[in-house]
Design a protein around this nucleic acid. Structure first.
Lengths: 136, 136
DNA sequence: GACTTATATAAGCAAGTGCTTCTATGATCG
DNA sequence: CGATCATAGAAGCACTTGCTTATATAAGTC
């Protein structure tokens, strides 16, 4: 699951986005990234290296050019890891089609425990039980 | 897409895995993580904070306990981001069901460019054209 | 009310990571 | 063959991050 680490970098994510539309030379990628992020060519090259060394992209040397393309493998692992969490949002939707596509290994939906008390979204926090004293 | 950053941490990923099976108190999580990773309670608490502050988990204060549970939102974003890459491995499979579930917005499969030359998987690299000289 | 339990926060340090500039390598072009 | 282009590598530095220990807070217990 090394992939998460690698995808943590915005630049690397962007590179993958570029490659998702089709293969690109290192130079083409560099041009866009340098433009968008204001970093140097070696910086981009280093990111490409990380992606390459971790199997997220493949390279094809064509003369002096390097053609980069998306390699599915580690991304697929990420997708697989997410598997167990999909129920957390799928249960809100119809979830039929997705379950079907996912192999329907989680046909039952619904939380393991009915969380009656509304869960606080970000950092906020609430005492679960009503304060015995009335006012805080 | 901050989520990737956060999931890059093995400990945090593990915490989410624990919570995927149902909510747990901070103490329960701590116990397991400390056991598995050999880190201190504050270290775990800090990871919980990161998860909390970024909306990956929700907290419910119950007396002196803190009940943590998975919050789907940012994970869903990750799932969505992966969307565009699924074709890279789905095209190898039947891909019918998945395309269906995913909304079939990418009914056409197959690479944008036929990559006749076999792509090298990890770091290795090959010259695309046959060397004019016969021997390197 | 003092003690303990459950959890969080603070400060400090060490390691990792990404950027920069400089340089190397290797193909292409004249 | 020498210059130039496309790309990668190396060294060094700054920032971030995760850990530790020490401590705070707040709730339960006697």
């Amino acid at each position: 699951m090394r992939a998460f680490d690698i995808l943590g970098e915005p630049v690397r994510r962007r590179i993958l986005e570029l490659l998702a539309d089709g293969e690109r030379t290192a130079g083409q990628v560099s041009a866009v990234i340098q433009e968008e992020f204001g970093i140097s060519q070696p910086a981009v090259s280093q990111h490409l290296r990380v992606l390459r060394e971790n199997g997220l992209v493949t390279v094809l040397a064509e003369g002096t050019r390097r053609l980069y393309a998306v390699a599915p493998s580690p991304l697929k692992d990420v997708d697989l890891w997410l598997e167990r969490y999909r129920k957390f949002w799928n249960q809100r939707l119809d979830s039929l089609e997705t379950d079907l596509a996912r192999g329907a290994r989680e046909s039952r939906v619904g939380p393991e425990r009915p969380e009656a008390d509304a869960r606080v979204p970000p950092d906020t926090e609430r005492t679960a039980r009503p304060r015995p004293d009335g006012e805080a």
